[in-house]
Amino acid sequence: MDLISRAIESVRAGRANGRRLTGFGPWGMRFPAFVGIGFHIVLSGEAWLLAEDARPVLLRPGDIAVAPNGAAHGLARSPARLHDLPTFTRTDPPGNGQPEAELLCGAYRLEHGTLHPFLRDMPDLVVISPEHADDPDLASVTRLLEDDVAHAHDGNWVTRSALVDLVLVRALRQWQEGPDSNGAVRVTDPAITAVLDDIHERPEHPWTVQELAQASGMSRTQFNRRFAAEVGRPPMSYVTQWRLAHGARLLRQTSWPLSAIARQAGYSNEFAFASAFRREYGLAPGRFRDHPDPLPRQPLRP
């Protein structure tokens, strides 16, 4: 599995959400920081993307602004200081007449857990200007997501997750292939890539550093050093994070008993899994599964 797919899979412990936003008159809105990833697609008009310590960026129709690690940012009709913008809330009065701008937004918000290193180490905000003539599928996905957030249907959570995934994968792939991605997390060592594939495909296996080092064809010391340099954390720390993220996804997406999920996540029993899960996510697995929808029911704040 490639790095972008792993990163998107890791945020599925949260739930995907989407919303259409409109700006009227001298509009502007601030989106506070959060743990997760979100995006804005400009459907019509123009919008300025604002950050605390960066120059404003003008967004035009078709542009996609991504907040890979949930950094605070703003959108406005004209350049402004971020902290001067009002926080966007559901109580904002609707506008009248033709909107100045229309945007489609999507996000995964993680109430608990941590982001994948690929997302965490990306710039706070990135802007992609797709060539829709060369990527008609992206335009189709945008229309499908727009329809999905506009109408309540049975199965919305399933379709929305798939559509948000598609937008994010295509946007991140285009960014990664562009010149602005220098310094982004990329695993280029084929031996480390093969080890990561093994970890991702078999989180239930009782991995040890020695076994992973042997699989890579390196000494334990060399493997530890190279893995940390490529991935950004020690091998067993990564294994633990991936196992718990896998367990979190199973808690959200299945009705399996905790004992089965524990085995699938590489833990000998549900008590060991619950203890590790509580340290990582801050609450017990049962509460995580039963926790109310962590995404806001007010307009999206990616």
Score class of each variant (00 low, 15 high):
59 L>H: 09
261 I>C: 11
135 D>P: 03
96 N>E: 09
285 P>G: 14
89 T>K: 00
53 D>F: 12
120 R>I: 04
286 G>R: 01
270 E>R: 09
270 E>S: 10
301 R>D: 06
34 F>W: 08
160 R>Y: 02
222 Q>I: 05
83 H>Y: 09
282 G>S: 15
146 E>K: 10
65 A>E: 05
270 E>K: 11
146 E>C: 05
73 H>V: 04
175 W>F: 13
30 R>A: 09
31 F>I: 11
142 T>W: 05
64 I>A: 04
268 S>A: 12
100 E>Y: 08
293 D>Q: 08
264 Q>F: 10
246 H>S: 10
80 A>L: 09
13 A>K: 15
174 Q>L: 06
211 E>C: 01
189 D>F: 00
244 L>G: 13
252 R>F: 08
42 V>P: 06
211 E>A: 14
288 F>S: 14
36 G>W: 12
13 A>I: 14
157 W>R: 04
272 A>H: 05
180 D>G: 12
12 R>C: 13
76 A>G: 07
96 N>K: 05
158 V>G: 01
71 A>H: 10
133 A>R: 07
171 A>G: 12
301 R>E: 09
81 R>D: 10
172 L>A: 03
227 F>P: 02
226 R>I: 01
204 E>M: 02
288 F>Q: 13
53 D>V: 12
4 I>C: 00
37 I>K: 13
27 W>D: 03
247 G>V: 14
19 R>Y: 09
193 T>C: 02
231 V>T: 10
253 Q>P: 01
168 L>N: 03
133 A>C: 03
294 P>A: 12
112 H>D: 15
21 L>P: 02
132 H>R: 09
74 G>D: 04
151 H>N: 09
273 F>M: 10
179 P>V: 11
98 Q>I: 06
186 R>K: 10
191 A>Y: 00
99 P>E: 11
175 W>I: 09
141 V>E: 10
254 T>E: 13
134 D>C: 07
16 A>Y: 05
91 T>P: 00
6 R>E: 15
59 L>P: 06
288 F>Y: 15
148 D>H: 07
42 V>C: 06
89 T>M: 02
248 A>R: 13
285 P>C: 14
